[in-house]
Design a protein around this nucleic acid. Structure first.
Lengths: 326, 326
DNA sequence: TGGGGTTACGCAAACGTTTACTAAACGAGC
DNA sequence: GCTCGTTTAGTAAACGTTTGCGTAACCCCA
């Protein structure tokens, strides 16, 4: 592997000059620029990231931490992150948060020793010890979760989104609407969504019924069964994640109920999963890929530490319909 | 951030000694070890990865390149990779191959400047220019694809797996079995699988009918419709990816056909997607997470450059059944 | 043609490690 | 008590960059 000195020697200049043209600084003539560029091409030179990072105290790596690696929601955010990062010449480093906060802190310490340009936390709240583990001067932002404290985040208004989703079902004529909630301990966005559901129902003077899942596919069916036990008159189910929504649709069909004729199902997040089911899941959509892109923009534009709230939207597909007569 | 010199000063030793205890080498007394460890704790010292990498010409990063970031198959492989990497103190860096091989080469060059310990290519074949872009001394391995040339890979025997899948449908009594193929240009594993299907059908003296999709969900329905047009007597469909299988199941229901009573559907890969549909997809399973783990093991144990072929398995769920009478 | 201002470029130190080399200290055997 | 071998420890160079500082060369105008 050629070094900057090799290039310098080949071009008959000093390493400093090579560095300057590589980095697009000023201080050389057009003629030398050409010579240096020729040398770079000839020697297939590529600056060493490590040496550069050591000197400048910054590398082009962005850390991304997601609950699971294979999570559909995180995948879409990561797609946005990867796109935006690549376009700007940054690389992304992957980590997992689902193993407890001690591990997360470990990741952040590693990311710090890599002199990462910033880190993005998906679906997890920033805690003070995370902030500390990362060191004060590398930016950190949470995505798909609204930060309660003063840390920056990019998210939708989950409470209002859940309100609007519930309201949509109410407007379809449903009166008995059950909630498939997520685990409030693992991702506290669930609590906020619950609140939106509760507010919409009480605003409409309707009774609430709620069962806890854990946001993943397998937790849907048992929670759904409990829900139906508690209120057999249910004509609609609002699942706080698409995975639970999808498994609800499948479970209902398995038990002989028709979706949406007998019972409507509404999902949340608008991940790919919502389309992998028949009938396709109506869902409350958040712009996940865009969130990822905005997150890297945020990290790389030092000035703004402002949080952003993006707009949610209702996407209606086959799994919801007006309440059946009778 | 404390440096090794700070620790040395605090402990009253030289930086060299600190380095030795940090790296678990020999050459210091128990007493100094204790003192150094105390200093490390007191100053919250963490060795700088960049400086270390610059000196040793190696970092603990493993590159992982997947077709799409949000791909279900890749997600599972990546889960395995991330697990194995983390356990060994390595970090994983993410890239995308779906943008053409020029981009891939770019990623590999980047990875090289990071002095990555090795890179894993998911669902894509290694080409000589990739090998070149990465530099000769960093290991590279393909996963979930059987390499045709001499590059190492970890995969199942796709031809035989497709053969076995087809054979399974034949053994259920099906005679008219259509194939939902993937794009042979994007991922050439598809070609091999096609071959397995063709061999099984001709071995059984059955007519073959095949339509091309692109492995993703949306390509399933149109390909399926073409398939049914060409052979309206179809009682089974073998999809070469779970996504196409899932969309086939959904599309069949949409068009009023019952799965598996009227028509059976068999998927491939056993990703999460295969369970997100009702009835759940029978599928040819490959041990994706294990493949990921083995891949990092391979990279880190310098000696073996041997390829490995893992066992596939048939997992039967609700989407397949014996051929309907008549 | 000479002087001031600008431009082009090189020198060398620094970033935080690792590691060959060297030297001091120590213990043991005679 | 001397020598020798081993253990413990320090010195300094090197890894491949970037960048502040200094200086030679150049340009323009009086």
């Amino acid at each position: 592997m050629a070094t900057i000195r090799d290039v310098a020697r080949y071009a008959g200049v000093s390493p400093a000059t090579v560095s300057r043209v590589v980095n697009g600084l000023v201080g050389y003539s057009l003629a030398t620029q050409k010579r240096v560029e020729g040398a770079i091409l000839a020697l297939d030179y590529e600056p060493d990231t490590l040496a550069r990072g050591l000197k400048t105290k910054q590398t082009s790596v962005i850390g991304v931490l997601a609950p699971l690696v294979s999570d559909a929601l995180a995948s879409e955010v990561m797609t946005g992150v990867e796109n935006a990062a690549r376009q700007r010449g940054y690389s992304v480093m992957l980590g997992r948060t689902g193993l407890g906060s001690a591990h997360v802190a470990g990741y952040l310490r590693t990311l710090r020793t890599y002199r990462s340009a910033g880190v993005i936390l998906i679906s997890a709240a920033i805690t003070p010890d995370m902030r500390r583990a990362l060191g004060a001067n590398v930016p950190l932002i949470a995505v798909a979760i609204r930060d309660q404290s003063h840390f920056p985040s990019i998210a939708i208004d989950d409470e209002q989104a859940a309100y609007d989703g519930t309201r949509y079902l109410i407007d379809l004529g449903h009166r008995h609407i059950g909630l498939l909630a997520g685990d409030p301990n693992s991702v506290l966005v669930n609590t906020v969504r619950e609140l939106g559901y509760l507010r919409a129902m009480t605003d409409a003077g309707l009774p609430t019924v709620l069962e806890q899942g854990n946001s993943l596919y397998d937790s849907g069916p048992p929670a759904l069964r409990r829900l139906l036990e508690r209120d057999p008159l249910l004509t609609a189910v609002f699942a706080l994640s698409d995975e639970m929504g999808a498994s609800a649709v499948n479970e209902l069909q398995r038990s002989g109920r028709r979706v949406p004729d007998d019972i409507s199902v509404l999902g949340f997040d608008n991940t790919r999963t919502s389309q992998h089911v028949y009938p396709a899941l109506s869902t409350v959509s958040q712009p996940l890929e865009e969130m990822g892109e905005l997150a890297v923009e945020h990290l790389l534009s030092a000035g703004n530490s402002r949080s952003r709230i993006l707009l949610h939207a209702l996407v209606t597909r086959g799994s919801t319909a007006p309440v059946p007569p009778g």
